[in-house]
């Protein structure tokens, strides 16, 4: 339950601000000049703040659409991401956001229309070169949908943009929106999936994996393109059994033919980020074992990384066409 909402002076009268404040009429509304006054200040502790994050309503002024890091994509020549929110409702222990920001507060940029304009401009500038726009990079695309109406606005936008596709990346199990909206070909609803045992240990507050699979199956049944995202891959003692069982569950519920793409990526951080996260959670087994901080990257040892990536890729190869498999990173 959100009981503090910080509102930038500049968006105080924005219609989306008013809607959000109406939904949280019990919350203390605290004015600020810029969200940076509240978010990511030096004297903040992500772990403590995650106990009860506040919501910050703000305006984004620039960098609406950014290129993804090299290797991040699901098949298109160009790949971009855009972040209408920073931070996430869930508390997944491997999440890079906890090392990226000092603050666990949720930032919602209410000027969606400026994001939409920037996407249209980028599509125009790319002159017909196919591109994917990822919306779940700095947040979960869907988890705040009932509050933000983000997907309800952006899904129809991509119906107008023939060479662009939108990826909604989520762990949420909401299906209502996809029942209500007409199917848009250029939209991929992608779900992050981790073996059940690992999810229970690391993905605090997220819906159970079985519920995510069920929701994704329902969305696929409605005719939407769905994506499977095995990212990050977590190294456990019995990871082979765990990932094989996960694949069995997924493909028992979702016909391979209706899967737009499957991607996977090893657990990796910039070294400084891994150090920051480890300092926040020195008691977390995930960071106490196989992950190594060597030179610029924090990752599993190369042989372990290759082993787990090869294994999961093999499992997917057994079940899907190679042209829909996308290694990430």
């Amino acid at each position: 339950m959100i009981d503090r909402i910080y509102v930038e002076d500049d968006v105080r009268d924005h219609p989306r601000t008013r809607e959000v404040l109406e939904r949280f009429s019990h919350a203390a509304v605290i004015p600020c000049e810029r969200y940076g006054e509240v978010f990511n200040r030096a004297a903040q502790n992500f772990r403590l703040q995650k106990r009860k994050p506040a919501l910050i309503l703000a305006r984004k002024f620039e960098n609406f659409v950014l290129e993804t890091p090299a290797g991040y994509g699901i098949g298109d020549q160009k790949n971009y991401y855009f972040s209408h929110m920073l931070n996430c409702l869930y508390d997944c222990r491997y999440c890079f956001l906890q090392g990226m920001y000092r603050s666990a507060n949720y930032v919602l940029f209410v000027n969606f229309e400026d994001f939409a304009d920037a996407i249209r401009n980028q599509v125009k500038a790319d002159e017909g070169v196919p591109a994917t726009y990822f919306s779940g990079y700095d947040c979960d695309s869907m988890v705040f949908e009932s509050i933000t109406g983000f997907a309800r606005m952006f899904v129809p936008l991509f119906a107008e943009l023939p060479h662009a596709q939108l990826e909604l990346r989520t762990k949420s199990v909401q299906t209502k929106l996809f029942q209500e909206l007409p199917v848009v070909e250029g939209v991929v609803v992608a779900c992050s999936l981790t073996p059940t045992e690992t999810a229970a240990q690391l993905e605090h507050g997220a819906p159970p994996v079985a519920a995510r699979i069920k929701a994704l199956a329902r969305i696929a049944q409605l005719g939407w393109a769905v994506g499977l995202r095995f990212d990050p891959l977590i190294y456990t003692r019995d990871y082979r059994d765990q990932y094989r069982r996960l694949m069995d569950e997924v493909f028992a519920a979702i016909p391979a033919a209706s899967v737009h793409s499957a991607s996977w990526g090893a657990l990796r951080y910039p070294k400084g980020m891994l150090d920051r996260i480890t300092r926040l959670y020195p008691d977390e087994p995930l960071f106490a074992g196989a992950l190594q901080g060597k030179q610029a990257t924090g990752s599993y040892p190369p042989d372990v990384e290759v082993e787990i990536v090869d294994y999961v890729r093999g499992l997917l190869h057994e079940r899907m066409d190679a042209n829909r498999l996308c290694p990430c990173g």
């Binding site: 503090r4 910080y6 203390a28 605290i30 600020c32 000049e33 403590l48 703040q49 009860k52």
Partner: peptide
């Protein structure tokens, strides 16, 4: 909920305490 300093200052002069428990009282 926020603290501001009236005096002119070259250092940041506004703070936002982050309460992470159940609300104590009005703010």
């Amino acid at each position: 909920q926020s603290v501001r300093e009236a005096a002119d200052s070259s250092v940041p002069n506004r703070w936002f305490p982050q309460w992470v428990g159940a609300p104590l009282c009005a703010a």
